[in-house]
Design a protein around this nucleic acid. Structure first.
Length: 116
DNA sequence: CTTTTGACTACCT
DNA sequence: GAGGTAGCCAAAA
């Protein structure tokens, strides 16, 4: 796209709300968030919303959102590309070669955790 | 209204 | 296993 989306849309607010709900030291995937929103919003929308997450407050921990295999596909969108990995490692998440280690162990599914 | 794009995912070859 | 194609939704032009 050419320009950043508006954070006024309800869809973005919903996505940001889920991302902010990610526990410390945990990560989730774009598809999981999309599914949490009703499985109707494409996973790409989540990533697209993340593009404007840095302009939204409170802060959205986009570094905890990775693709379905735990790959830091969006790290290049951070100010310093290495920031995403640094933040994850700060929370105790091991990242090697843009790949989250023990992804299955740190994975946090909003569709399940928020349904409890 | 149609086309394009994007930090995705799944299926197919 | 790796690469290509298609489906998916939302926003901007």
């Amino acid at each position: 796209m050419n320009d950043v989306p508006r954070a006024d849309s309800n869809i973005y607010e919903a996505i940001y709300d889920v991302v902010r709900s990610i526990p410390h030291g945990r990560v989730t995937s774009y598809g999981a968030i999309a599914k949490c929103l009703g499985a109707k919003s494409g996973a790409r929308l989540v990533g697209y919303a993340m593009n404007g997450s840095h302009t939204v407050l409170p802060y959205v921990p986009a570094h905890r959102v990775v693709n379905r295999v735990g790959l830091l596909t969006g790290r290049h969108h951070f100010a310093p590309p290495e920031l995403m990995q640094q933040l994850l490692e700060q929370e105790g998440i091991k990242v090697v070669d843009d790949q989250v280690q023990d992804f299955d162990s740190v994975f946090w599914d909003p569709a399940i955790e928020l349904s409890l």
